[in-house]
Nucleic acid binder design. Sequence first.
RNA 1: GGGCCCGUAGCUCAACGGUCAGAGCAGACCGCUCAUAACGGUUUGGUUGCAGGUUCGAAUCCUGCCGGGCCUACCA
Length: 574
Amino acid sequence: MARILITSALPYINGVKHLGNLVGSQLPADVYARYMRARGHEVMFICATDEHGTPAELAAARAGKPVAEYCAEMHAVQKRLADGFGLSFDHFGRSSSARNHALTQHMARRLGEAGLIEVRTERQVYSVADGRFLPDRYIEGTCPNCGFERARGDQCEMCTKQLDPTDLINPRSAISGSTDLEVRETRHLYLRQSLLRDRLEAWIDSKTDWPVLTTSIARKWLRDGDGLQDRGITRDLEWGVPAQFPGAPWSGMEGKVFYVWFDAPIEYIAATAEWADAHGHPDAAWQRWWREDLGAGDVRYVQFMGKDNVPFHTLSFPATLMGANHDGTEPWKLVDYIKSFNWLTYEGGKFSTSQGRGVFMDQALEILPSDCWRWWLLANAPESGDADFTWTSFQSALNRDLADVLGNFVSRVTKFCSARFGEAVPAGGAWTEAEHGLARALDQRLAAYGALMEAMEIRKSAAELRAIWALGNEYLQAAAPWSAFKTDRDRAACIIRVALNLVRLNAVLSAPFIPATAQRILSALGCPDAGWPGAAAEALAALPPGSAFRVPENLFEKLSDARRAELEARFAGG
RNA sequence: GGGCCCGUAGCUCAACGGUCAGAGCAGACCGCUCAUAACGGUUUGGUUGCAGGUUCGAAUCCUGCCGGGCCUACCA
């Protein structure tokens, strides 16, 4: 039995996430976690809301609420949606938790003691009307290069020129529109990650099995220009982890908080501590996942994220953990494998909150059960390149894969048995070559499925799973119990007994992808407790003759053309 | 500007130096009738974006070009 630590990128707090966000980290992480648990491994699956930063403060202001209250509410919303999608986090924490405050400050102090933090004075744009410093992209003005009037302070979207906010002509606050801006001096803490450049590069180089997408982004940052740049890790904001605290090896940081990207990854650790607290466990319970000197030596740590998160997870966060262990007394667990994803687009374009374009998590659950979404999203996860959500593709996956191939198989087997033998696994008959052939085919596919799941090949795993579902229909067609029943009742009983067991096996194997449906099947079969199969021949005999079942309601309702067209129109945005 | 990824059957993708380039969907034909008119089988369909090069052999490696996407460090 292995011990596997899994973290999914933290969803940002300022609103409900769309399907692309879901499939970019949390959903595939969930599949992996469920699979590993099913294989009997000890799993710790952690996620949390990422609650700090300028957008959170602005969203709270727009909602007319104190930011703490806003975040608490949005956390509850995201928690409810995560539950709705069956995301099986061991803990869904909050980056604003007391645990994260303490741990972030602890890490910062350790980095300070290691000489990896320095105070720098810089000049930033301050908006008097908004009462806050403005990040570059929150300043708008006319592009000095092309004359575009709504250029952002970091870059002009029209001519793509990189800008400095002070380059803009007629600059104004993107928040309030105020032109009452001034450049003020402010002091910030910088993480001197450039000092760790060589160690980070050696560490990245040692990860020969990582996806190209992951390592190429990391190398780009390590080598681009003058190499890895130091990074400001504080901001002039109200809401966050205070950068000045008792024991801090610096002064003058009053009124400032740590940068959201500094404290967010630390929340992976803090959320595990939150988990321990919630279950009344001592610190040792979470430390054995995160500290190599306290039991994490045999942990395999896997992170799931969208490609935009890669620089922070391959460089800044490892630099933080390496630096915090400068004297060898705090060996924090570094990530062993990073699974990164491309983007999901919507009908050929981008998801857009402002335009109401694309499907968001709350809307999805109102339309159809979570497993329908899980299945399409996972079977089409953006692994090798961006993937595109279309209603046509979604309809096909739902109607063909789920309703016809899987759902109808369960239906035809249970109904046939119910009508001919009653609602219990029938006895009689012995295996023939047809059953042995089925078992051999299953063994092969099971091995392939397992290998793909171990490798986190999500799409390929889904395709293999679908092929396993199809084996049931092929077997029934070849064995034809409806014919056998007329001449050889025992033969038909044997076929249906095997088929009912295959229904059970399908439920077990499908659980990582469509957990709710798997549970419905298993409970209909009266065996909610189902272990991962070994040899197919044994798995096909797990339900003994006489064991009672009931015919479940149809597992999946199909999506009609009319309904599809209606949904297409509803979410087209614009 | 620089960097990275992608471009394979009508559609979505697989194959990552080696038997006729595969699968699902869509299309055609045949079969079955237990089942959500569901299922099974057969089959049509590709000068692998373009042009060169390396190699006994290239979708796969190299060069250039065309097209699409992403990143480029104060959004997260």
